[in-house]
């Protein structure tokens, strides 16, 4: 493999890091039964999307998008705006999810998904 191909593929490294993080989050969300851990997994997934956006906005030799004399190249400010608001909205929705978990724990006495399903099944049989 020639050197050009290797450097060309290195330009895709940021996407691969994002994919690794995203799949880690995805795995936690679908494979774990614990609800708090599922929310942590969703957070990992979320951060990977943020990194994806921000790395798309980066321009080589660019600087932070704050206007200043003598600077020509800025990174793209648009993804920054989108992700900035997404982070704060993300923590607010995470808080909502955690509130739901607390409520589930009040009602079922468990935060494990399979246990909750067993309890629900039992209740259906009684009723």
């Amino acid at each position: 493999m020639s050197w050009e191909v290797v450097t060309d593929l290195l330009g895709l490294l940021n996407y691969w890091v994002v994919i690794i993080l995203m799949m880690a989050g995805f795995y936690v969300v679908i494979a774990q039964d614990n609800l708090v851990k599922k929310i942590v997994g969703l957070n990992i997934f979320q951060v990977s999307v943020f990194v994806f956006y921000i790395s798309m906005g980066k321009v080589s030799d660019g600087t932070a998008p704050i206007l200043e004399e003598g600077i020509e190249v800025y990174s793209n400010p648009l993804p920054h705006v989108l992700i900035l608001t997404a982070i704060v909205v993300g923590v607010a929705t995470t808080a909502l999810a955690l509130a739901l978990v607390v409520r589930i724990n009040h009602s079922y006495g468990s935060i494990e998904e399979d246990e909750i399903q067993v309890i629900e099944h039992d209740e259906e049989e009684i009723a």
């Binding site: 943020f50 921000i54 906005g57 920054h80 923590v91 808080a95 955690l98």
Partner: peptide
């Protein structure tokens, strides 16, 4: 990656508030 505003928010939100909420 040059996103100073975003880094700011993530440090305050992710490392601060969401950890406290999850511990709660």
């Amino acid at each position: 990656l040059d996103a100073v505003d975003v880094a700011f928010t993530e440090a305050a939100v992710g490392a601060g508030i969401s950890t406290v909420l999850m511990l709660g």
